[in-house]
Amino acid sequence: MSVVDKADAAARARVRVERPATRWVPAVRSAAGEALPFIASFVLLAASWEAMALWLHSPLVPDLSAILREFLVIGESGKAFREIWVTFYRMGLGFLLAVVLAFPIGIASAVSRKAERFFEPGVILGLTVPGLVWALLCVIWFGVSIVSPVIAVALGVLPSMVITVQQGVRSLSADIVEMTRVFRLKRTTVLRRIWIPLLYASTISGARVGFSIAWKVIVLVEIFGMSNGVGYQLNSQFSLQSVEGVIAWTLAFWLAMMAVEYLVFRPIEKNASHWKKSAYE
């Protein structure tokens, strides 16, 4: 430890001894600083909606209290949780299928020009076709079974996941690949030490985008072909002409997606790319 370090440590120790009661203040302040923009955006959104409801005074634009009442109704009965779970379950399966297919296709199109040309038209087709078309076709082909939502979601998510994996593999420079030869690393070591960390980091951000695409497909499948799930609930609220019902279900699902984002994707992404240097940290 250098002299400067020692002096520094001593100074820090002194601060701890002299002001023990206020140690938590900076932590609270930084937490508040992080939450503030979040709360501000929420309040602004709610206030604009309420102003619009007051101004228009129409059953088509229910005020906040009506929406909140409906929200509590679906939440209290536990119905919202069951339906959201059903939707997540279908999305998750379809998403998983897409990831499993995206790896071989993405890796092949990254390393071989021929494979790239072979898969490219399909990928572009997939990017072009609206989720609505997959939803309709799958419901027609596979009926009301679990197969419809899974295949539809997988088809919707696959193209963007393939591109993500392909770009991830391409981002590995020839220099780094050459080093694996210089050090004569075994294939299994190259897989474990090079490919998996690289693909893990590059795929996880693609997965977040993929998950939001999955939601846009699943809701349509549930509207056309399912008898439960958030999409089905949205559709039945629509047929009841209940605007507050539609909004309450949308809000519930939004909250669930936020939970997935903050509790699943963010921590995984942080863990996967902790070796990258960010300018904004």
Binding site: D175, M179, L185, T189, R193, I194, L198, W275
Partner: peptide
């Protein structure tokens, strides 16, 4: 330097002794 970016310095050096 051609270090493996997702490995720490320690892990990088250990790979050098791999074989």
């Amino acid at each position: 330097h051609r270090l493996f970016p997702w490995l720490t310095v320690r892990q990088n050096v250990a790979l050098g002794a791999f074989h």
